[in-house]
Design a protein around this nucleic acid. Sequence first.
DNA 1: CCTTTATAGTTTCATTTGTAACTTATTTGG
DNA 2: CCAAATAAGTTACAAATGAAACTATAAAGG
Lengths: 158, 158
Amino acid sequence: MKKGPLDAFQLESFFPYLVRIYYRAVSQSVSNIYEREYNITVSEWRAMAVLGNEQPLSAGEIVKRSSIDKVRVSRAIAGLTKAGYLERRVDENDRRKVALQLTRSGQLVFQDLVAKVRQLEEELLAGLSEDERDQLRNLMAKVRKNATEIEARYHSED
Amino acid sequence: MKKGPLDAFQLESFFPYLVRIYYRAVSQSVSNIYEREYNITVSEWRAMAVLGNEQPLSAGEIVKRSSIDKVRVSRAIAGLTKAGYLERRVDENDRRKVALQLTRSGQLVFQDLVAKVRQLEEELLAGLSEDERDQLRNLMAKVRKNATEIEARYHSED
DNA sequence: CCTTTATAGTTTCATTTGTAACTTATTTGG
DNA sequence: CCAAATAAGTTACAAATGAAACTATAAAGG
């Protein structure tokens, strides 16, 4: 005997749930590129992307620019180094820091991946006008800002 | 000596990255509610939400309605049962299936959580007009559909 | 009818992940 | 100057996660 809804709460209309399935679809499509072809994790890809843009960088700089926490950055660095895509030295001015750079082969992999992920990005946004793309980015940014503020309020109650 | 960008790839403008940080901000703000107050995981919350809407249900039905894979549903069921929020019986017509229902206290927790997550949803969307909310949902759905199709193409190449 | 295949859900196993702890180096403050 | 505090990055440990394997049950097919 089926009972009716307790309060007509529809998970599939619940906004955070929509964000979750949206994220999962997007992330799965993009991770195919670096994971299957180069066995690179998303954290490793991100660290590489940051270094592809500017180097040398310390681990802490990568943390700041990639929205990954320091433990995962450390692990990503270890993985990329092991794969031969990254080399490290101790920073000359602060011996706590490492100076990280892509190797020659790391740069080649990065360039290959950039071309591929750009193509994928275009496919993800296919069918959206330039206005709609801007709108989507702006609205996501606004919600994210709201979420960050909610989070900050929550932690100030601790 | 800083080197210039290899190909001017900007991670912080890369769409999948934007989706990732958006998702993370949203999910962190909402998980505070059920995790801290009831020690309920996101999968458990989702299973509960589905059952709050309709019951009894089998585990497979929860899988279908919650976008969680069956292993995690099984674990969520075990967790909720252990917490006293869920009870199970063997389905009368198919002894492979379980018939799951919220307990009295499970229903009380569900109702409390519904009120709270609804409030949070409103706060997440604060500052967005009704049009903008619809727009955001529609655009996310469109991108998600694109992503799902990319994924399907990818797997058909396996 | 009976064997093979498929399904429902659980458990196992290996890997990943997040928090805490740690070591080393640098900065701060008296 | 020196002790205390902080920072940089790594490692340890427990929990979470995903794929594979598993058992029991049901369905399909000859």
